[in-house]
Structures are given as C-alpha cells and as structure tokens.
C-alpha cells in the first residue's frame, strides 16, 4: 500500500492564521477606524477626537491611567528586580520551585484573585472606597508582578558569570560590579518587563471597578460609551490608546534591538 503523504506548501500552512488575522484583527480594525471617524449619521468627521482632546475630563482619564500605570510599574520593578536577581543568582537547588511560587498566581483565576484581595484589603482598611488609588495600585501590582519577574529572571540567568568575575578582577568592588555590569546587562529584561506591565495596567479597568475605584480610565470610558451604544466615541478612544501603545513599543523596541546585537556574543 502506498503511504499517504501529507504535504503542505508554506502558503497553505499559514492559511488558518490568515483567516484568523482577517476576521479578528483586520476587519475589526477597519470597523473601529470607520466608527472613530464618523458621527452617528455615518458622516465623516474629526469631532470625536476634537471633543476628546478639548475636554479636561477625558484628558484627565488618560493622565490618571498613565500615572496609575507608571506607579504600578515602578513598584513591580522594585519588588521584582531583587527577587529575580536572588532567584537566578542564588545557588538554591530548589530554584525552580521558588520561581513557580512567584509565578503561580498567574494560573489562578483572575476574578478569584482580585476578590480574595478585596476581602483582605477590606479587613485591613475597613471601607475600600476610602483608598481608591492605593487599592488599584495594589491590585494591579498583584496581578502583573509575575510578568515583571519572568523577563528579569531570564536576563539574570543569561548573565555570564565570567563577566562579573572580569569586573572584579579589574578592580571593581561588589557595588561597582553591580552598577557597571549587572545593571546595564539587565536593561533588556527591565525593558520587556516594563512593557509587559505598563501597557496592560494602563487599560485594565476591571481591577479598578472590582476594588471600587470610581475614577474613570480610558478603558472604563470605552466601556461606558459602548454601554450607551455610542460606538463612535468608544472607537475613537480605542484608536487613541492604540497610538499610545504603538509609540511606547517603538521606544522600547529600540532598546531590545541593540540588545539583540549584543546577545549574539554572549
């Protein structure tokens, strides 16, 4: 009997993804673009954008979310950096178990995690709505910390130990070794950690809502516009966010590109 051979050309192999891409990425993008630049009657207009950038309230949501995301990212970095360093550098035989413990929250259902956090916080604070900003930062940090630890951990693991030895051989004490070798070489880890925490925490309105933070962020704005069937303004804010994210990625890509070149010799 002849063996049945399955052979696909490259173009055939990428067909499933192409279908997915068109249905769920390109078509929705076109729809969003259409709504963002039209009014309720379907006429072309810039009014949606004009009203967003001239209204202090809507600009406020954007700044607030940026501020919240920045604080969250910095706190995540401050917690994750030493943790990842210790995890990767220590001679623990149970290194991976420890890493798992830090990563495990990622595998637990999001709603469950935040609800549990809510209970803990209400015991500590009494009325949750008294500390909306603090609670949001705690919630977001709790949610996104693993995304900061993982890339940092990997970049510390990759760090060639002989570089640290070379630095101390050339006269650097422990502090200088860290400052001049460890820190600069962990920049790619920092950059990808920051990207992975900053962007999602800018738009994650669910955490805020669950922790009774009534302040609007762009994510919640979109939600409220869509709930009121105002597709046009909702789409407009999506476009604004898209552009911000695009710019941030562009900036961070610069760092990681340079790094790709460096890594080749490590």
């Amino acid at each position: 009997m002849k063996k049945l051979r399955l052979r696909f050309s490259r173009s055939q192999l990428c067909l499933p993804y192409a279908v997915f891409l068109i249905l769920f990425v390109i078509v929705p993008l076109i729809v969003i673009l259409y709504y963002a630049f039209t009014n309720g009657q379907g006429h072309f207009t810039f009014d949606n954008f004009k009203s967003f950038f001239t209204n202090a309230n809507t600009i406020g949501t954007l700044l607030y979310s940026l501020y919240l995301a920045a604080v969250t990212t910095i706190i995540c970095l401050l917690i994750a950096y030493p943790t990842a360093y210790l995890l990767a550098r220590s001679g623990f035989k149970k290194q991976y178990v420890l890493l798992m413990l830090f990563i495990a929250p990622m595998w637990i259902n999001f709603t469950l995690r935040i609800t549990a956090l809510k209970e803990v916080l209400s015991v500590l604070e009494g009325n949750l709505s008294d500390f909306p900003f603090l609670n949001s930062v705690i919630g977001l940090t709790y949610d996104f910390l693993p995304f900061m630890i993982l890339p940092l951990y990997t970049s510390f693991l990759k760090l060639d130990k002989s570089l640290l030895e070379a630095a101390s051989d050339l006269g650097a004490n422990k502090f200088f070794v860290f400052l001049q070798v460890t820190l600069p070489l962990s920049v790619p880890g920092i950059v990808s950690g920051v990207t992975m925490v900053l962007l999602p925490s800018m738009t994650n309105c669910v955490v805020l809502e669950m922790l009774y933070n009534k302040t609007y962020i762009p994510g919640s704005l979109i939600d409220s516009y869509f709930k009121a069937f105002d597709w046009n303004r909702g789409s407009m804010i999506s476009i604004v966010l898209l552009i911000i994210i695009f710019i941030v990625t562009l900036v961070t890509n610069r760092f990681s590109d340079k790094d790709g070149e460096r890594r080749t010799i490590l």
Binding site: D160, S162, L163, E165, A166, A167, S168, D169, L170, G171, A172, N173, Q180, V181, P184, L185, V187, R262, R263, I265, L266
Partner: peptide, 30 residues
C-alpha cells in the same frame, strides 16, 4: 583577599569582554 584587591589580572578563556561597552571602554574599565 577579594579579586579587586589583588594586583593580578586575568585573561579569561572565553574573553569575558563587556558586551555593553565598546573596545575603548572595555580597556579603560580597570
């Protein structure tokens, strides 16, 4: 004594040059 307090220097097997520094800065490190 720790390595940084010894008047000896090492040439490493896999060079161990600092990838984030250029040639000049590598040599000027010490």
């Amino acid at each position: 004594l720790p390595p940084n307090k010894r008047p000896v220097n090492t040439v490493f097997q896999k060079y161990a040059l600092f990838p984030h520094l250029n040639v000049y800065e590598n040599i000027a490190f010490g």
